[in-house]
Design a protein around this nucleic acid. Structure first.
Length: 337
DNA sequence: AAGTCGGGGAC
DNA sequence: GTCCCAGACTT
């Protein structure tokens, strides 16, 4: 891995947070951007929220970015900029759980704490033939204990790297390379033909579909935007004027004009463009979104939580992928002329 | 203990 | 489509 041998706790922390539930290939360019823009934790702590969220844009799980900033400022302001060097202190930091604390402890400080990530769950469940669900409380406890037991106390950093590397390249989720596996003879799952049945998960994802209609409302050279709040997807990302509906809506210029007229009265002057239905697949949700570009004659007074933002400065805001997908079609920009 | 949070890649 | 990813937080 590219950061093999890295000892700087700031860099290790940053890379581990970026890689939470994220493939190395997906997260690596973000790590390089962050290190390039913020070589030290002091520089990250001093950066404006919006700039950092724009850097994080597209990586997902935006709470990680919020907690990253919180912890950077926490360390700079309350710990003299010195990253704590014990597992107990590290795991108390916001956005750092058992996995990330063990990773930092072992990689930066060579402390004997075993990482337990998706790779480790898979390798241990197969090697030892354990079918306790990994997403149960009992499973987490059992696998954490086992990981700590088999950890090399002499070389914890090397061992942690190795077991995750092994899980990512040999003991893979699908089509594991059992024929070339050096642990084949010791592997209980291989012996019993249960490799593809392990590890076990007990929870089933509940999926739902949500219907978003975004009205891109322009008045003069400004457009109405909104920073999304907590307890929903895309916290701290921006969006346009949103109408969420329980069911699919068939929009055409007439229905859009009518709806705008009901909301804004004579303010709503023209519907300039209606996009086709765009879809974005999230882990728990399918978002189906339309974008309707319209012009307002003047600024409505009673729009709480929304702000007017210069159209030409839209690129400084961090948007969800489906919004960027629409913006990149160029249809909105064309509708302005 | 259960639910929630993104986006991408492999199959 | 389904699963999974160098998980953590909230309720």
């Amino acid at each position: 891995m590219p950061w093999k041998g890295e000892k700087n706790p700031y860099k290790i922390w940053l890379s581990e947070v970026i890689l939470q539930q994220t493939r190395v290939e997906q997260g690596w360019s973000y790590y390089e951007k962050f290190i390039s823009n913020y070589p030290t934790i002091q520089q990250l702590a001093a950066a404006p929220d919006e700039t950092v969220f724009k850097l994080w844009e597209g990586l997902g799980y935006y709470n990680r970015c919020k907690n990253l900033l919180f912890t950077a400022r926490d360390i700079v302001q309350n710990r003299n900029g010195i990253f704590p060097s014990t597992y107990g202190e590290i795991v108390e930091l916001k956005g750092i759980g058992p996995y990330t604390a063990a990773a930092i402890s072992s990689f930066a400080f060579n402390l004997p704490h075993a990482v337990v990530d998706g790779n480790v769950f898979r390798v241990l469940s197969r090697l030892f033939g354990i079918s306790t669900p990994i997403d149960s409380t009992a499973g987490k406890k059992e696998f954490t204990g086992l990981a700590q037991l088999v950890l090399s106390k002499e070389q914890p950093a090397l061992y942690n790297q190795a077991i995750m590397d092994f899980g990512a390249t040999v003991c893979k989720p699908a089509l594991p390379l059992c024929n070339h596996c050096p642990l084949q003879q010791q592997c209980i799952a291989y012996k019993e033909g249960r490799v593809n049945a392990l590890p076990v998960k007990e929870k089933v994802l509940q999926k739902k579909t949500r219907w978003f209609t975004y009205f891109i409302l322009v008045a003069g050279d400004k457009v109405l935007v909104h920073k999304r709040g907590a307890k929903d997807i895309w916290e701290n990302l921006f969006e346009f004027y949103l109408l969420e509906s329980d069911d699919k809506i068939i929009w055409d210029k007439a229905t859009a004009q009518t709806w705008l007229h009901e909301q804004f009265g004579k303010n709503a002057t023209a519907v300039n463009h209606i996009s086709p239905l765009l879809a974005q697949q999230l882990t728990h949700q399918t978002i189906k979104a339309w974008f309707i570009a319209a012009t307002l004659a003047k600024v409505p007074a009673n729009l709480q939580h929304y702000t007017w933002h210069p159209v030409k400065n839209l690129p400084v805001l961090a948007f969800p992928k489906v919004i960027n997908t629409y913006l990149q079609t160029g249809a909105f920009q064309q509708s302005l002329f």
